[in-house]
């Protein structure tokens, strides 16, 4: 075999192991292979018991997130050659309980996503009948929230967040960014409904602005910015409530 590379992979079998171990595999080194290609090679050619998630292989489905040498990355979007000839350490995303090998439990994230009410909420009396057509929006109004709508739910931002790892009650970057995505949508009236959760103790105020969520995000969603902006608008709310109680809601 020509050149090879070593991958050191986190292994854990829930029915056999009390503790995880690391297993090293040697794979061919190919210039155009991403790490996911190497892992697929291991699964197909060396060890069929290795478990992990993947689907699209093109940075769209968000299911192949792994810790690559301690940094959360989409394994289909990083090339072996960027690490050659060193050994690559592959682990499940930090901050989540491990189910088996590289598969972690994402139930907590899924619950938080639904709790944030990520859909357009209209005031009861302002809901248009279907035959009146869609709610129109200008390109400028779209531009305000568009980056926040690019999230692929890959959870890399959670894996980069020490606050979430230390206290998993934190709603976390992607869910808050998604809340902001709807809060900033000109067609939406649901901000008050979301605010209870977003401005709660488990919400934005847990964030200490480490900023790594935005650094690792493969879609430039910039969840750190979403959280800081939500802090600013919540603070403005507070001032309005306290200083001008009569000017509360428009």
């Amino acid at each position: 075999m020509a050149e090879t590379m070593k991958l050191e992979i986190f292994r854990y079998h829930p029915e056999k192991d009390n503790e995880p171990t690391f297993q090293t595999y040697e794979v061919p080194f190919l210039e155009d292979w991403v790490i996911l290609d190497a892992i697929n090679y291991i699964k197909d050619e060396i060890d069929g018991t290795l478990s992990y998630r993947w689907s699209c292989q093109m940075g769209v489905c968000g299911s192949c997130g792994m810790m690559i040498n301690g940094v959360p990355k989409l394994s289909c979007a990083v090339f072996l050659k960027d690490y050659y000839p060193d050994k690559i350490r592959v682990e499940p995303l930090t901050g989540f309980p491990v189910e088996r090998d590289l598969i972690f439990q994402m139930d907590d994230f899924m619950t938080k996503l639904t709790e944030i009410q990520p859909y357009i909420i209209r005031n009861k009396d302002e809901e248009k009948p279907l035959d009146e057509g869609e709610y129109l929006q200008t390109p400028a109004e779209l531009a305000r929230f568009k980056p926040y709508s690019m999230c692929i739910n890959c959870m890399l931002c959670y894996a980069a967040c020490p606050v979430y790892a230390l206290d998993s009650t934190f709603i976390g970057p992607a869910a808050i960014a998604l809340g902001q995505r709807y809060n900033m949508d000109s067609r939406d009236h649901g901000r008050d409904a979301r605010q209870e959760l977003i401005a709660s103790h488990e919400g934005i105020w847990e964030c200490t602005f480490v900023g790594e969520c935005s650094a690792v995000c493969p879609k430039d969603v910039d969840p750190a910015a979403a959280i800081q902006r939500a802090k600013v608008s919540s603070t403005i709310d507070w001032f309005k409530d306290v200083l001008i109680p009569w000017g509360k809601k428009k």
Binding site: P14, E15, E19, T94
Partner: peptide, 9 residues
């Protein structure tokens, strides 16, 4: 309920 492994932080 599936048994999961919680890594120390």
């Amino acid at each position: 309920e599936m048994s999961t492994y919680h890594r120390p932080f």
